[in-house]
């Protein structure tokens, strides 16, 4: 697999930075690839737009930043509007339909999943929406293996929350697979 660029976007508090770190750890530690994670750093980390970026490659990674994401996750309408045009041609846009009412037209695949709704209603904790999102993303794109993302999630989350996070990831996988079967 050649270089894949992933941009995770949303607003402060939705956990996109942590999601990026977990995704990069899944690729680097558990799938044995190379990975770099970067993030917008500054006022965004205290509310407002937030983004976290990951580059995954079988080979070495020279330029560390994301130019045209092959995979874009947008958890808010604002993030979606801001970054949709940056998607690489033929790329994959995944939106959270809880907050993104009107996904834009892009040259690529657009998938909508009720990411935050699932976290709220099926898991009773909105805070795990980022883990649900990772499940959706991995099911839809296969950017890392499902085993790798599960191990990466479990090694990062606070002790005592493993079960909740495992279920969140599983709900994300299911939502992603349901979308694929529908298409």
């Amino acid at each position: 697999m050649a270089r894949v660029e992933i941009r995770l976007s949303g607003e402060g508090g939705q956990g996109v930075i942590l999601a990026g770190i977990i995704l990069a750890e899944a690729a680097a530690i558990f799938d044995g690839k190379n990975a770099i994670q970067t993030q917008s750093y500054g006022p965004e980390s205290r509310g407002g737009a937030s983004k976290s970026e990951v580059v995954v490659d079988e080979g070495d990674i020279d330029y560390p930043e994301v130019r045209r994401p092959d995979i874009l996750l947008a958890l808010t309408q604002e993030a979606c509007d801001k970054y949709a045009s940056s998607l690489a041609p033929g790329g994959t846009l995944v939106t959270d339909e809880t907050f993104v009412q009107s996904p834009p037209k892009v040259d690529g695949q657009v998938y909508s999943a009720g990411i935050t709704k699932i976290a709220r209603e099926k898991l009773g904790k909105e805070i795990v929406a980022n883990i649900v999102a990772l499940g959706v993303l991995v099911a839809l794109t296969g950017v890392v293996s499902s085993e790798a993302i599960e191990r990466a999630v479990l090694s990062r989350v606070p002790r005592g929350t493993e079960d909740l996070n495992r279920r969140a990831l599983q709900e994300g996988f299911t939502a992603g697979e349901t979308i694929l079967h529908r298409v």
Binding site: N34, I36, P64
Partner: peptide, 10 residues
């Protein structure tokens, strides 16, 4: 520099 200092790399 800020890029090398803050990026996470394998």
């Amino acid at each position: 520099d800020e890029v090398v200092a803050h990026m996470r790399e394998k």
